[in-house]
Write a protein that binds this DNA or RNA. Structure first.
Lengths: 181, 181
DNA sequence: GCCGGTTGTGCAACTAGTTGCAAAAAGGCT
DNA sequence: AGCCTTTTTGCAACTAGTTGCACAACCGGC
């Protein structure tokens, strides 16, 4: 039940059309909660039907026409409610770790290359986060909103750092393993 | 498409009934790929229909009767194929980080308590992993299977370590924030 | 010998997320 | 004006995961 709240957050940060939201879910918010444009359009429809958001009037509404949405008071209230409510951490599901478990049983052939590829991807993501940090969070700014957002970005940075380190370690381990069958 | 392969891996490690699998998905494999018993039973049916696993004969099959499954050669081949195939890392989705983004907009009321709760949960999980490490991976054992499984466990340990550190840092940050509204 | 809890299996209906495709509008080209 | 491409929105059908419940067997106590 997080997608609607991700959208409410994004719209509160800045009212947007479906496509603009889609773009923003490819970065920023999307780094922590990814979504495709179909999910977004469908959810926008639901949220509007529930009275949590509305389209900004302005232009005539027609197919292929930009519709900009903004959050209504009820939407903000719902987001505040959800934010304050306790939630259990979601169960982990990581295909890569699963694959290594499988490789322990059926052999490691082919895995190493993909580990290298993943390492490269995580390095890239880490570099991107670091760039954002430099751009958006210079040392002097510390309004509460900035500190919270910086905290979230920090989690991203530290997670990518973990993956690059772990993958490096894993590849070193593979180098010491007998040949894959 | 990972659940069937998680099950194949578990069954190769040890042939089991549906319930035994369910129990093992509450620990071990389940730490990296969680699944409910309904998912498991359904998938066992599919895998059997596809000829990747079969029930061990032995007892008479009846409702409420333990059925033990084992992996057939086709199943092992499919698992090897999947293990070797390249896969993209899955997009991140973390409700907690999303909540902090939302909190930056609608206020931090109520979040802090839940952060503390999460910290406690992650600490517990970390302690459990460490115990497993001590029990299953004494310093001298280093068969390739053990090294791979240890590597996976290490990822779990490092991830939980990251979360406890990050949550600790987050709570410290909260302490320095103006009062939540 | 049957009664009630536990064990083991499973169906049905639901929510969440993905994939493939298409249609309306806008803008450029000639 | 007519055509082509890109932008923006959206439907439909699918796969994956969750929730709630049901039903049979088995196991103990009385």
């Amino acid at each position: 039940m997080s997608l609607p709240h991700a959208i409410l957050t994004a719209l509160l940060e800045k009212p947007s059309s479906g496509l603009e939201l889609t773009r923003r879910f490819d970065k920023s918010i999307g780094y922590f909660w990814s979504a495709t444009h179909q999910q977004i359009y469908r959810e926008l429809g639901k949220l509007e039907a529930e009275g949590l958001i509305r389209t900004l009037p302005a232009e005539q509404p027609a197919r292929g026409q930009k519709k900009r949405y903004e959050v209504l008071p009820a939407g903000r209230a719902e987001l505040a409610r959800w934010t304050a409510a306790a939630q259990d951490p979601r169960a982990m599901r990581d295909p890569l770790l699963l694959r290594l478990r499988a490789a322990a049983v059926v052999g490691t052939a082919g895995v190493e290359d993909d580990l290298r590829r993943h390492l490269e991807l995580h390095r890239r993501q880490l570099a991107e986060y670091r760039q954002i940090e430099q751009r958006d969070f210079p040392p002097d700014r510390d309004a509460p909103q900035d500190r919270l957002r910086h905290l979230v970005l920090r989690a991203g940075i530290d997670l990518e750092t973990f993956w690059t380190q772990w993958l490096t370690h894993a590849l070193a381990e593979f180098a010491g393993l007998p040949d894959a069958d």
